[in-house]
Design a protein around this nucleic acid. Sequence first.
DNA 1: TTGAGGATTGGCT
DNA 2: GCCAATCCTCAAA
Length: 185
Amino acid sequence: MNILPREFYQRDTVIVAKKLLGKKLVRKIGNQEISGIITETEAYRHEDDPASHAFRKITDRNKVMFGNVGISYVYFTYGMHYCFNIVAKKSKVPAGAVLIRAIEPDKGIKKMQENRSLKDIKNLTNGPAKLTQALNITKEHYGIDLTKKSEIHITEGIKVKKIAESQRVGIKKGKELLWNFKIMN
DNA sequence: TTGAGGATTGGCT
DNA sequence: GCCAATCCTCAAA
């Protein structure tokens, strides 16, 4: 399966968020492979988006959002959860990233069940902090290049028939923007 | 230097 | 439906 090239992420953040639906998120742990199809994403941009971590200015945490595209942005929140994002923006814009909110388990389901201490497949990776736990993604994976065949990368996946747009989840500002995207297959 | 709050989840009522 | 868990980040003083 082909890894998505850097240029894929060199477009408007909202476009990339939609295009990432149906793609495959692959996590390699030693010689084992865990993967899932991306089924829900959200776009977070820059100064036009008050909900974005990059809204105010560059800091130690959000600095990768201002850097090269196709890089992972992992952050820690609520004292117990990690969320996984991919830096994506057109070249004119200084910052932006796509939050991966849900995936559908593909390979390594048994390993995901171990990581989550849960058997129920439909609840394994259907939330932003659930999928990082299932794929064992932590702040160790902050700033890694997803266009290389490393621990985490994104490949071509399935065809998407229809995309549903809605308000983003769990934010206070910027709710009027319909930048949450889900697969409707 | 400090403390308020967070792109969430799961368990309990 | 409600709320605790839990700790890192950043804005404000």
